[in-house]
């Protein structure tokens, strides 16, 4: 239950951090809040040879709204998002999702970017970025590139980032007031990773759904967008009946894994139950 030895460096600037990541050191790993990485190190599931601590890069701790995008810095902590004064359907979705990330003492340390870079398929932030087609900015000494969320998550604990790249910020779309957003998830204990989580963002005009996005966690090795549920919602009259038929479509579409936390049949049932709950609750918020 103690981590194996590693070297530790704490750069003072972004440039210094990028140079360290590019210096050819084998098994170098970035540590941000450490709330996923350190447990894995304590279990020795992860044994990095060197940690690059980005804790001093305060320029990554900022949330900035520019035009129709909210840029969330990689080191913004979960608790900052839980308390964000940001208005509208995006603000509400961020607050409600943040409240489901671990427990308070985890949320005071863990960061938004760290969660994405860790890439757990049931993580609220991975699902939210996938739901909203967020754009993820990564930097290296070679330059900067923007990766769409659809391409960012490759598999469990695997992203499209190269070893010398650092996640710096994420652009989320500001959602106008005709969007209804919501999240519902099921976990055995408060604060656990969800067995299944469903996030939704639907646009409703005169009672009719004109756009729909549904993201589901716990049913694939990465955040899953349900094309079947989105198709079922589109053009329909927003209400419980429509949500239930979308939930049926999603439950048919997913091919969930079976493990100690729940088998495939159970996870399909959870999809059926949680999808309407995510958006019915969101409709009131």
């Amino acid at each position: 239950m103690k981590p194996s030895s590693f070297d530790y460096v704490r750069p003072n600037t972004l440039q210094e951090a990028l140079e360290l990541l590019a210096d050819g050191t084998e098994d170098s790993k970035v540590i941000s809040g450490g709330q996923s990485l350190v447990p894995m190190m304590n279990f020795r599931l992860a044994r990095p040879a060197r940690l690059v601590d980005i804790g001093r890069l305060s320029e990554l701790e900022v949330i900035r709204t520019v035009d129709d995008r909210v840029h969330v810095g990689a080191r913004v902590r979960h608790v900052q998002l839980q308390n964000t004064p940001l208005g509208g359907p995006l603000g509400s979705l961020l607050r409600r999702s943040a409240a489901l990330v671990g427990h308070l003492p985890i949320r005071t340390r863990g960061t938004f970017g760290g969660s994405l870079a860790h890439s757990d398929a049931a993580s609220e932030w991975c699902l939210l970025t996938r739901l909203l087609d967020a754009e993820i900015t990564v930097r290296s000494i070679r330059g900067e590139r923007v990766i769409p969320a659809a391409e960012f998550f490759v598999s469990v604990f695997t992203t499209a980032m190269e070893p010398d790249e650092l996640l710096t910020s994420v652009a989320l779309p500001v959602l106008p007031d005709d969007h209804r957003t919501g999240i519902a998830e099921f976990a055995r204990r408060a604060g656990d990773f969800a067995i299944v989580a469903v996030l939704g963002d639907v646009t409703v005009s005169d009672g009719t759904v004109t756009a729909a996005r549904i993201a589901i966690g716990g049913v694939d090795d990465k955040p899953f967008r349900s094309a079947a549920a989105e198709k079922a919602l589109l053009g329909g009259t927003f209400g419980l009946d429509l949500l239930q038929s979308a939930a049926e479509a999603a439950a048919d579409e997913v091919d969930p894994p079976s493990d100690a936390h729940g088998d495939a049949v159970y996870r399909r049932d959870l999809v059926r139950a949680l999808l309407p709950r995510a958006l019915a609750a969101g409709a009131a918020a």
């Binding site: 530790y8 704490r10 540590i31 450490g34 709330q35 350190v38 447990p39 304590n42 940690l51 601590d53 804790g55 608790v79 308070l104 003492p105 985890i106 005071t108 340390r109």
Partner: peptide
């Protein structure tokens, strides 16, 4: 659990050097 700059945090999930 200890307080880091006033906020509760898990002392087993942070290295002393941080």
């Amino acid at each position: 659990t200890v307080l880091l700059d006033g906020q509760p945090a898990r002392a087993c999930l942070i290295f002393a050097v941080q």
